[in-house]
């Protein structure tokens, strides 16, 4: 395996006079799960949108498997936005058809099995679902792609604790071994045992980046405890 699934080099983004990201450099290697951690407004979503090719950098560069953002990189990237992206007038079965149409790497069988586990019927209407249920559906669709890079923006933010466990095990069972994953969240305690690496952001800058187990060993505490200490208001 050659290139990193995601690589950010001195990546910056400004919105008018406000700086959202400043000089962010890190990479996600194949087979690794990286946590993108930080308080609200620290630039997590901006970074993920840059990687997904939805925003253009103000400075620096980002690439997916060596490819700059564009149609080729998007075909390799399974992106879960932090908000509802499916049309609400659809039924569950329509969303399966939609994904099958858009993404050649989508496995309908895998998605159907996950949706059955989550007790989402094909005929259910999205407009009648709760926010948490919609999030489960979206995650199941995104994880049913055989992508090289998974970008998950707050995948567990809106779902109940019981469903979180299922979602995390879904993530573990379904990401392909040659794929990298970048997972953003402020619910650190829930995901920290899942992470190979952790990148902490504060006001658009990297505060700490490295192996999660190294940080535990060095600080003698978990990522969540360390975060609470360093980012205390």
């Amino acid at each position: 395996m050659c290139t990193d699934c995601l690589s950010c080099q001195a990546l910056s983004k400004t919105y008018g006079r406000r700086t959202a990201l400043c000089g962010v450099t890190f990479a996600v290697a194949p087979g690794r799960i990286t946590g993108l951690l930080g308080p609200n407004g620290s630039g997590k979503t901006t970074l993920i949108k840059l990687a997904a090719g939805l925003l253009t950098p103000s400075g620096g560069a980002v690439s997916v498997c060596g490819t700059p953002p564009g149609p080729a990189s998007k075909a390799l990237t399974a992106y879960l936005p932090d908000r509802v992206f499916l049309p609400l007038h659809c039924r569950v079965e329509d969303t399966l058809a939609l994904f099958a149409d858009f993404f050649p790497d989508f496995s309908r069988g895998k998605a159907a099995a996950m949706l059955a586990d989550l007790k989402l019927e094909p005929r259910m209407k999205l407009s009648s679902m709760s926010k948490g249920t919609l999030e489960k559906l979206q995650l199941a669709l995104v994880m049913s792609r055989r992508a090289r890079l998974y970008l998950l923006d707050e995948p567990i933010g809106g779902v109940d604790p019981a469903a979180r466990a299922y979602i995390l095990s879904t993530i573990i069972r379904n990401y392909s071994e040659d794929a990298g994953m970048l997972l953003s969240t402020h619910l650190i305690a829930e995901v920290e045992n899942l992470l190979d690496d952790a990148v902490f952001l504060r006001e658009g800058r990297v505060v700490s980046a490295g192996l999660a187990d190294d940080l535990r060993q060095r600080e003698g505490k978990g990522l969540d405890a360390w975060f609470r200490e360093v980012f205390a208001c």
């Binding site: 573990i172 069972r173 045992n193 899942l194 190979d196």
Partner: peptide, 14 residues
């Protein structure tokens, strides 16, 4: 590995 990892809710690499 993957099965054990999912059971323990940890990363398969770990």
């Amino acid at each position: 590995v993957r099965e054990l990892a999912a059971e323990a809710a940890v990363n398969p690499n770990t």
